[in-house]
Structure formats: C-alpha cells, structure tokens
C-alpha cells in the first residue's frame, strides 16, 4: 500500500515546504490513497491547484499538475475537463483560495455539476501569507487582520456548495483520515461535481494566535470538537452547536456537464452521417 502511494509522490521534490505539524501532508496522503484504491488511470489524472500553502501540494503529486493563480484552480480545471472529459480532474484549494477569491468559481462549477473532485484544505486561515482571516475563520477567532477577534459570522462552505448544486459533498478532518480517504473515494466515484472539505490544522499561522497549542493538541481539539454527521442527526441542535460534523453530507444523481456537451456533439455527428 505504502509503496503504491510512494509511486504517486514526487519523492525527489521532498522535503516539502510545509511547517512541522502542518496538516497539509495528511490531506495529500488521503488524496493519494483514495486515488490509488479506486484504481483510476494515473496517466489520465490532472491535479489543479490555486495559490497558498495547500495549493503547493500539486508540486509533490506525480500526475500532470497545474499550479495556477490565486483562486482560479476551478476555472483552469473546467477547461481541462471540458476539453478532454476522459481525464480525471482534481482540484486542491485552500479555504481562502476556494471560498474567498475563488468563491464564484466554486459556485458555478458546482452549478454545472462538472465532473471535478475538489478537496478544500480548510485550515481556517490564510496560511501562506502569515495568518490573515479567511471566510472560514470562525466568528471570534483571531488573525493578524482580526486582532480584536473576527466579526464575520461563521460560514459553512459545504452548505454553500450544496445550494449551488454539487452532487457529492463530504467533510473529513486530518484527525479522521480513514473517513477523509473514504470521502475522497466517494468523490472520485461520483460522476459529477464533488466537494470534500478537509478540516486541517495550521499550528503556525492559526493555532498559535488562537492559543490552541501544539499540533498534537490541535489534533486532540479536532477529535473532541467533531462528531459523525449520522450521530448528530439523532441529537438536538443544542448538542451539535459548534461541532464539526464529519462524514458524507450529501449525494444526488444529476446530469453531468461534459456528458451533456458530448451528447450535443454526438447529435451533430449523427446528423452529418
């Protein structure tokens, strides 16, 4: 298993640039395990990312990889997928990259139900630029640009993506790696727009300022503050308040964008015969 994963890593690019204790490596490993276990053709797999610590993952993953501009990974990925629908297309994005500057692309890619698998590395902060608040920084938390606590209301990105039309949505964390891997597998298997929020930890730019301790302590915090979505359904909302709900959140069958387009092309080709 580990050997298979190693083949999907560009080992000559190690060591990676991430800080000790960073959650990014765990999410990347979950992606590689999911890709490996579904047996998709890795020569026909493209991973696209934006800009941020998390988006540097493309440099380490052994596929055709595309490290684009801040927030625009989904735009590039849409071009890749539509031009060559036979390719498996993944997007790696940070919470800032994907929900702030790239938020509009997220809505529209989900709306089209284009077969792209998005993994959002959510560390609740802009890590790369040193800890400014992102749309996914919870209310009241501190950031270099929220020195008095974040005024913004806590934002649930999975709800947004659901409203926009995604056909597979899940949330895992870097503590629940098995679940995370399973969710990414589910994303790959879904023929449509899939979104997996991977709640991660950034001990350097987020944990420190919010007094969350070391990386292991942040992991402990994740464990304590999350619960399976299935279990949450049985509890009252007051017991679930503030918890990170983990698991498959939504699934639906719907027509996929590139397939519809190919049907249109086929119609013309038939007409020409």
């Amino acid at each position: 298993m580990l050997k298979d994963i190693e083949k999907l890593l560009r080992q000559d690019k190690m060591p990676h640039i991430w800080c000790p204790g960073c959650g990014n490596g765990i999410v990347m490993k979950a992606m590689l395990e999911a890709i490996n276990s579904t047996g998709i053709d890795t020569e026909k797999t493209v991973v696209v990312s934006g800009i941020g610590c998390s988006s540097r993952a493309t440099g380490y993953m052994n596929f055709d990889t595309l490290h684009t501009t801040h927030g625009r990974a989904l735009a590039f990925a849409t071009g890749v997928k539509l031009a060559k629908p036979e390719l498996n297309v993944f997007v790696v994005t940070g919470d800032g990259d994907g929900s702030a500057i790239g938020g509009n692309h997220l809505i529209h890619a989900a709306r089209r139900n284009i077969d792209i698998n998005v993994v959002m590395f959510n560390n609740n902060i802009y890590g790369m630029t040193g800890g400014q608040y992102s749309p996914l920084t919870p209310h009241g938390k501190f950031a270099t640009t929220a020195p008095y606590g974040n005024f913004d209301r806590t934002f649930n990105i999975c709800d947004l993506v659901k409203g926009a039309g995604a056909t597979f949505i899940g949330r895992g964390t870097v503590f629940h790696t098995k679940i995370l891997t399973e969710l990414i597998k589910g994303a790959i298997e879904n023929k449509g727009f899939s979104f997996v929020e991977a709640v991660s930890i950034c001990p350097i730019s987020y944990g420190r300022r919010n007094k969350m301790g070391t990386a292991p302590q942040m992991m402990e915090w994740l464990k304590k503050n999350s619960m399976p979505v299935k279990a949450a359904e049985k509890l009252g909302p007051e017991k679930v308040e503030g918890k990170i709900l983990v698991g498959e959140l939504y699934k639906e069958e719907a027509p996929e964008f590139t397939q519809k387009y190919d049907e249109l092309i086929a119609r013309f080709q038939k007409g020409a015969e």
């Binding site: 696209v48 055709d64 595309l66 684009t68 501009t69 625009r72 989904l74 735009a75 590039f76 990925a77 849409t78 071009g79 890749v80 997928k81 539509l82 031009a83 060559k84 390719l87 509009n104 692309h105 809505i107 529209h108 387009y261 249109l264 092309i265 013309f268 080709q269």
Partner: peptide, 29 residues
C-alpha cells in the same frame, strides 16, 4: 464549435474564461 467536436463554455467572468482557455490549451487543444 459543437458541430466540429469542439467545446464552448460561457464562464462566470472573464478571469475564469481566461483560466478555462489555459486549462484547455494544456490538453493540447
């Protein structure tokens, strides 16, 4: 474009229009 087996997409803005073009170009199109 669809008559020729090509692809057209109206993106959500010009930034993504440009991005999609570059993604497509990387596939050899």
């Amino acid at each position: 474009l669809p008559k020729l087996g090509g692809k057209f997409i109206q993106m959500e803005d010009e930034i993504s229009g440009m991005g999609a073009v570059l993604g497509a170009a990387l596939t050899g199109t």
